[in-house]
Design a protein around this nucleic acid. Structure first.
Lengths: 339, 339
DNA sequence: TTGAAAGCGTTACCAC
DNA sequence: GTGGTAACGCTTTCAA
């Protein structure tokens, strides 16, 4: 493997000059520059990450994280990822500051970002609200030279450099495909239980699910109700839906807090013939799968959503390599046997 | 983050002495040793990986890999993983030597290992034959100070330090679970198509599958045939099985070369009502899923099987951290929509 | 526009 | 038993 030192010798210059060229810092004579680039290409030079990281420790990089502080246990796995990457990067003199915002409130997120900037962060990872103010704030940071990566939910219209998270349309389609495979009667009458109509990822899943099912004649979508990520609400709305629609033989839960809903199903005694599919792998969902109430759950690698954005930001700041813009997490299917 | 330098200052010794203690090289006064260990513990010292890797480059580590040279495209993904990790580790002055053995022959593998040892490898990754001679050879290497990690298939009775690969029993059970969920008739008559009775991983899958299904009254396993990982053979045996058993309504392919078998099914016109589940994600399987011939395929992260063993060996040789012994890859379910 | 040197954390080698 | 020092590859700062 060629090193900067070797290139310097071959080009008859000092290591500093090679570094200036390779990292586009400017101030080098065009001829020298051309010569160095040619040699680097010929030798297939690739920088040594260990050297870069070691050297970067003198910068004391600071990374900021903004996310919901909800009690949705889905985020426990995200947090586990955050903790692991924090402990790894701390060895490289890189600090991570995490801010959780209590409500689904735009201003809270913006304030959190401002706080982090105040603390001197060099980059930001955010699970953002889908709101204009947050977009503008990300653009503002970009101009200040602070790159942002979105995770869990994207803001394509902002100038974030990358997104790490689920392809919600494809995950809705995967649930649709599963239900068709599970369909034992040859005809599905489906009730959908979403979180809240304002949460983009849930509505995207539902939209894709519906569009996909519309192409299938043997499937009918009966009703869509919302549980506001709340167990009690979930019980009530599912109870009501089932009594109004005795024909329902399949349920699609797109959000958290499904325990109450499943309880409502079990009370009717219809869960044996009901095809229930959910998202994410929280403890209550695992239990429901083990007890044959839910047939399958479709997941989105929450741990990766915690680690990867920060890893990418760290790499970007140290090695300068531009991350891939769209990083969809795998769509994982779990049933009783592989959960 | 504390460094060796800091510990040295606090303990009133040199960096060399701290290094000797932390890496158990011996030759240090017990009192000094105790003092240093105490300080390291108190500061929660964790070695800096970038520093270790940089320093380790002077060793020019060599890793050996032994695997089948079969034309089974499953191994293409493993090889992709091998290539990626090779290119990454090459930056750290670590070379990787890959030997593929042509046949399912014990002696070939042992010869390949001997060749690699001759070349001076510091560690070995092997997708092993399940044979006594290979076990003994691994034990022999261990005594020479050359650690081995098995991948794809394990040799628990050998002194390999770790295994990376599928839990074949669990993956067979997952197929069983899927088939039960897909069962539209309320009664499964299943034909099993294995690779070869001598390949451990296939027989393990089948065994677990059968044991699991035996607990289910509505399931009957009609017959088990072998295709020797060969398309033509597969066509023949499936053709024969289907004509002898018109009651079969589900097929479980546990190995590669399933295209011929599926062709036989399609020729009978029974594929519309046939529940077919397979393993691994090779191009032909993807096609068969997209064309609704196969309902699902259960995979075992081949890419990870290529990268992780070498990453673990490199870490073990440089940082000295003992790898986890059993590293099961995820059991991934793919259907038409998430493939 | 360029060069020289220090420093990041660890390991290895040579003195004592 | 222990200390000092050079080396791994890269970046940064100061000086020319």
């Amino acid at each position: 493997m060629p090193t900067i030192k070797e290139i310097a010798v071959l080009a008859g210059v000092s290591r500093g000059t090679v570094d200036r060229v390779l990292n586009k810092r400017g101030g080098v004579h065009p001829d020298t520059q051309a010569r160095i680039l040619e040699i680097a290409k010929a030798l297939d030079y690739r920088p040594n990450k260990a050297g870069i990281v070691l050297s970067a420790q003198r910068k004391n990089l600071k990374l900021g994280v903004v996310m919901f502080g909800t009690n949705n246990p889905f985020f426990d796995d995200v947090k586990e990822g955050l903790n692991d990457i924090e402990s790894e990067l701390s060895c490289y003199n890189c600090d991570i500051f995490i801010k959780t915002t209590p409500s689904f409130n735009e201003k809270d997120q913006i304030d959190a970002i401002d706080d982090l900037v105040e603390m001197g962060i060099n980059a930001l990872a955010i699970a953002p609200q889908n709101q204009e103010g947050v977009v503008r704030k990300i653009d503002e940071l970009r101009e200040k030279g602070i790159p942002t990566i979105t995770f869990n939910s994207d803001l394509p219209s902002s100038s974030r450099i990358a997104y790490v998270g689920s392809n919600y349309r494809k995950s809705g389609e995967t649930v649709a495909g599963l239900m068709k495979l599970f369909d034992h009667k040859g005809h599905l009458e489906i009730g959908i239980v979403g979180g809240a109509p304002s949460v983009l990822c849930h509505t995207e899943r539902i939209e894709a699910f519906k569009e996909y099912m519309e192409k299938t004649p043997s499937v009918n979508i009966v009703d869509t109700v919302w549980n506001n990520d709340d167990d009690v609400t979930c019980y009530t709305v599912v109870n009501k839906m089932l009594s109004e629609h005795p024909e329902i033989n399949a349920l699609y839960f797109t959000a958290g807090a499904i325990e109450g809903g499943c309880r409502a199903v079990m009370e009717t005694g219809r869960h044996k013939d009901m095809i229930i599919v959910a998202h994410d792998k929280v403890p209550s969902t695992v239990d429901l799968i083990k007890n044959d109430v839910i047939k399958a759950t479709v997941c989105q690698q929450p741990y990766v959503q915690g680690t990867k954005p920060l890893q990418m930001l760290f790499d970007y700041l140290t090695t300068g390599e531009t991350p891939q813009e769209i990083n969809y997490t795998d769509i994982e299917i779990y049933i009783k046997e592989n959960i």
